[in-house]
Nucleic acid binder design. Structure first.
Lengths: 334, 334
DNA sequence: TTGTACGCGTTATCAG
DNA sequence: CTGATAACGCGTACAA
């Protein structure tokens, strides 16, 4: 399909043109062993005049190195994950390709993509799992491609493979505590899907803070799914009764949905109601009023992930590392 | 590196286990020609018990099809491009991988990435070029991998390969016109880098609208580089004299920078000053006041791009298509 | 319907 | 230092 009769230029053509063997060409190209200067020049000349490009598939087949890493995240268009990817890119060499895919928070789609990705086309897989594929993931890591888990860490995989995650429990704990400290009497919590380890841990953190610092707080909960729409629905739900004095959304997208809904209902954030979000909201600082949030710094997380990947690439049998990154609390004021 | 002594499971192992030939296994796996039911079952059984995964590199080497498309954009973290990618993903088959890279608006980096990507690892390249690599791109397309240009269309490449771009001239024209119609007397324009075809065309569109509809408008210009920071600098620049009655930023990021700076200076957008943006601003509608903008619909553009890719994949010699998509004007009101 | 055997483009091993 | 040549894992003529 690529060629229509027209053959590709191969290392053989270069060898013939330069009057050397394919082995010598390969050595010049990879610097794998010394070659006489004159031949080096002849080869380089042949390469440029012929417009030769090495064939990645052949090289991968031979060396068992793909020079690529795979990245599988639940939502490719979530700025949080994009920043992580950007961070990974920051630290990887330029000739390393990023093979990306998005599971759309769908376990089945994730499984299919895991199969495609495990066809030996990547050297390492960075995965923020949608959940439900622990066995498949374990298999891939054990007898296939090393896996680095990010963001989500299913219990059964902890300490089995490398991971870089946030300290969801304590970050959520501190977020809730900072709101409790304002003296609120009632609080609405918008949860993520409990199948995601992050959602569960954030929920636990909130509840722990409440138990310790405000056991008599009137708490109402809504169980969303990390989407903007579920944040909107949560607010509609809360407003069926008296509005709580504060509201806390356990991810950025739900926070956007919830806050926009509140604004539409005439609430002034920070005055009529206190708002908290796990994760910053893009551009919020420009237009919004007060917001308390967990500052996630995804790009930094990405860089750290990149370094973990490199380490694993260098030594497949290095000790498993589990990074748990503590986040900062932030407050925007207009 | 991948294996440490441990051989991979190949089609040969499957064949031996199932007691058939490798050819039969291949036929079962690809459905390339009929196989007796009993053998099909034996093979499938062998595949699952052995945990066999086809080797993508070997298949690519043999078939000259990579089952992957490359995407090279100037900024991987710009939501605009992410939505385009999402759109492409929407229409591509699940077993098609996306190989992504970001040139960071840097011609040299783009060139290196183009080289890496042209190593026969993708079947088609979707490219939003940073400029300055026209010759390389032409070569890749002509005797290598078909290229689909998106967003940016260098003059020398127009009608040479497929393209999907916006109607930058007329969209900018209409944006400017809609602001002129408000009866403003002065306008500040924030341009992008003239090396990008989009920036140039948008500038032309604005100027044409002014010549036609308000030749005596007091116009001031600032030449930015599509970054948020340059939008901020533009406003600082304009405010050294009397503020213009209206301001227009010719991409989304510069608009964010400009508007936030204006807000910091105490301006109320839509009241003290009219604001226009080429491209919507994420979440603006939720918190901001009035804004006139060109609605880009990148996801739709992405889907269209995906279809162009598929068409090109089916017939390498199909006629070249150039899609120029007209955008809508939008206005947000609080 | 099935099996044999060759070649895709590289790198690596082994002689020279 | 250099050159033959054997793999790498797969698909596919060709033969049976």
């Amino acid at each position: 399909m690529t060629a229509r009769g027209r053959r590709n230029i191969t290392i053989k053509d270069v060898a013939r043109y330069a009057g050397v063997s394919t082995a010598t060409v390969s050595r010049v190209l990879n610097g794998s062993s010394p070659v006489k200067d004159e031949l080096v020049e002849r080869v380089q000349h042949a390469v440029t005049t012929l417009g030769y490009h090495p064939n990645a598939a052949a090289r991968t087949l031979k060396t068992r190195k793909a020079n690529a890493i795979g990245i599988l995240v639940p939502d490719i268009s979530n700025p949080y994950f994009m920043q992580i990817i950007k961070g990974i890119e920051d630290v990887m060499a330029l000739d390393f390709s990023l093979l990306m895919a998005s599971s759309d928070e769908d376990s089945n789609k994730e499984k299919k993509l895991l199969n495609v990705l495990s066809e030996d086309r990547i050297d390492c897989l960075v995965l923020a799992t949608a959940g439900g594929n622990d066995e498949v993931i374990r298999t891939i890591d054990e007898k296939g491609i090393p896996v680095v888990l990010i963001d989500r860490l299913p219990e059964s995989l902890a300490n089995v493979m490398d991971s870089v995650v946030e300290d969801n429990f304590w970050s959520a704990y501190e977020l809730a505590q900072s709101m409790i400290n304002l003296g609120i009497k009632s609080l609405g919590i918008i949860h993520g899907p409990m199948s995601a380890s992050t959602a569960y841990q954030r929920a636990s953190g909130c509840m722990a803070a409440i138990r310790q610092h405000a056991p008599r707080l009137a708490v109402r909960e809504y169980f969303g799914d990390f989407t903007l729409e579920s944040g909107e629905r949560a607010v509609e739900h809360f407003l069926q009764e008296d509005a709580p004095e504060a509201i806390i959304a356990l991810n950025n997208l739900m926070a956007v949905g919830a806050i926009s809904k509140l604004i539409k209902h005439g609430f002034v954030i920070g005055k009529d109601i206190v708002a908290g979000s796990y994760g910053a909201i893009e551009n919020y600082l420009l237009f919004g009023s007060s917001l308390r949030y967990v500052e996630q710094e995804p790009r930094t997380l990405g860089k750290l992930t990149g370094r973990v990947v490199q380490r694993r690439l260098e030594d497949r049998h290095a000790e498993v590392v589990s990074h748990v990154v503590k986040q900062q609390l932030g407050i925007t004021v207009k």
